[in-house]
Amino acid sequence: MKRLPLVRRCPAWVPVFVLLLTVGQLAVAEWAPGIDRFADKAFGARLIAYPLLMVLAPAIWWLAHRRREPRAALTSHHAPYGAFTLVMLPFLIDVTGNSLDLYDSLVWWDDLNHFANWLLLLTGLGLLLCEQVQPRWAVVVLVCGLGAILAIGWEVGEWWTFIRHGTELDTAYEDTLGDEVLGTLGALGAGFLVAFRRPAPPRW
Rank of each mutant, 00 (worst) to 15 (best):
R66I: 07
A151G: 14
M1D: 09
L122H: 06
A151V: 01
D40V: 11
Y50N: 08
L128G: 00
A49T: 13
A190M: 06
P90H: 01
E131H: 08
K41W: 07
A64I: 07
T123E: 02
Q132W: 02
V7C: 15
V140C: 04
A200T: 02
G34S: 03
G153Q: 14
G166W: 10
G97S: 01
T184K: 12
I163T: 15
L142D: 01
L177W: 07
D36I: 07
D94L: 11
V28M: 02
E69K: 12
L56V: 10
G186Y: 11
D175E: 07
L112H: 03
W109A: 07
T85Y: 03
P90S: 04
F192L: 15
K41H: 13
A73S: 13
R3Q: 14
V18W: 01
T176I: 11
P70A: 10
K41A: 11
N117C: 13
G183C: 09
W154V: 08
A200Q: 03
V87K: 04
S99A: 12
P202L: 15
V139R: 04
A195L: 05
D104N: 13
E30I: 00
L92E: 02
T171A: 14
P90Y: 00
E69Q: 14
L102A: 09
W160S: 15
W109Q: 05
G191S: 11
R164P: 11
G124S: 02
D111I: 06
V14W: 14
A116G: 08
P11C: 05
F115Y: 09
L125P: 03
P80S: 01
F162G: 15
V181M: 14
R203G: 06
A79T: 00
V143T: 05
W204C: 13
I149A: 15
A59M: 05
L129K: 05
L20N: 11
M1C: 09
L21M: 15
L56P: 03
P11S: 09
L125C: 08
V140T: 03
D175T: 15
P70T: 10
H165Y: 13
G178A: 11
L120Q: 04
L52Y: 10
P90Q: 03
F115A: 08
D40H: 14
V28I: 03
Y81L: 09
D110N: 07
F91H: 03
L142C: 05
L146T: 08
W118P: 01
L177S: 10
P70L: 10
G191I: 04
L119F: 02
A116W: 06
P58W: 01
T161K: 08
F192N: 10
L142P: 00
Q25G: 06
C130D: 01
Q25W: 10
L188Y: 09
P33H: 03
E69M: 12
N113R: 05
A187G: 05
L89Q: 04
V139K: 04
P90T: 02
A12G: 13
W31D: 00
L120I: 06
V143D: 00
P199K: 05
W160G: 15
L150V: 05
A73N: 02
W137T: 06
V143F: 03
G147E: 02
I48E: 10
L121T: 08
I152F: 00
G186F: 06
Q25M: 14
V107G: 08
V107Y: 08
I93T: 07
L129Q: 04
S105G: 04
A79Y: 00
L119P: 01
F162Y: 15
G44E: 09
E30W: 08
E155F: 01
V16R: 13
E131T: 08
R198V: 06
L53R: 11
A59Q: 05
G44I: 06
L74H: 12
